[in-house]
Amino acid sequence: MSDRSETQQKIESFGGAFHGLKADLSQPDAVGKLVTDALSVSGQIDILVNNAGIIRRTEAEQYSDEDWYDVNQVNQHAVFQLSREIGKHMLERGKGKISLMTWTL
């Protein structure tokens, strides 16, 4: 993750407001709290960039169910949940953008 203070300085230098929020997307309840916190801080969400992702490199025959769950929770399920929940908010407002980042390994 990039340095928040540098990001904050750049945003504020253009007259924007910066609100740093942190969530562990491997935790199923994190998405709901993140959306609630973001809306409570800013009142609206204009853009969602789904750019979180994890990987666990292990031989297939040794890959644990826990690793499989964690990777899919962050890389797929949290992306779906965030897009759905923030998308509802954007539909109510009549505007917004959602970007889904992809990775090539």
Rank of each mutant, 00 (worst) to 15 (best):
M1W: 12
S2L: 12
D3G: 10
S5P: 00
S5H: 12
T7R: 05
T7D: 10
Q8M: 02
K10N: 06
I11Y: 02
E12S: 05
E12K: 08
S13Q: 13
F14R: 10
F14C: 04
G15K: 03
G16P: 00
A17T: 08
F18C: 06
F18K: 05
H19F: 14
H19C: 05
H19L: 08
G20I: 00
L21C: 02
A23D: 01
A23P: 00
D24V: 04
L25T: 10
S26I: 04
Q27F: 05
P28W: 09
P28H: 10
D29N: 13
A30F: 09
A30I: 06
V31R: 02
V31L: 02
G32V: 01
K33Y: 05
L34P: 06
D37H: 05
A38S: 11
A38C: 03
S40K: 14
V41C: 15
V41N: 14
S42T: 14
S42C: 15
G43E: 02
I45C: 09
D46A: 12
I47D: 08
I47F: 10
N50Y: 02
G53D: 03
I55A: 11
I55F: 15
R56T: 07
R56I: 06
A60L: 14
Q62H: 15
Y63F: 13
W68A: 11
W68P: 01
Y69G: 07
D70C: 09
Q73C: 06
N75K: 11
Q76N: 10
V79N: 08
Q81L: 15
Q81W: 09
S83M: 02
R84A: 13
E85C: 03
E85V: 06
I86E: 01
H89L: 01
H89R: 13
H89K: 15
M90I: 00
E92Y: 01
R93K: 15
R93E: 14
G96M: 01
K97N: 11
K97P: 00
I98T: 02
I98Q: 04
S99K: 11
S99C: 15
M101G: 01
M101C: 06
T102E: 13
T102D: 14
T102V: 13
W103Q: 12
L105C: 05
L105D: 06
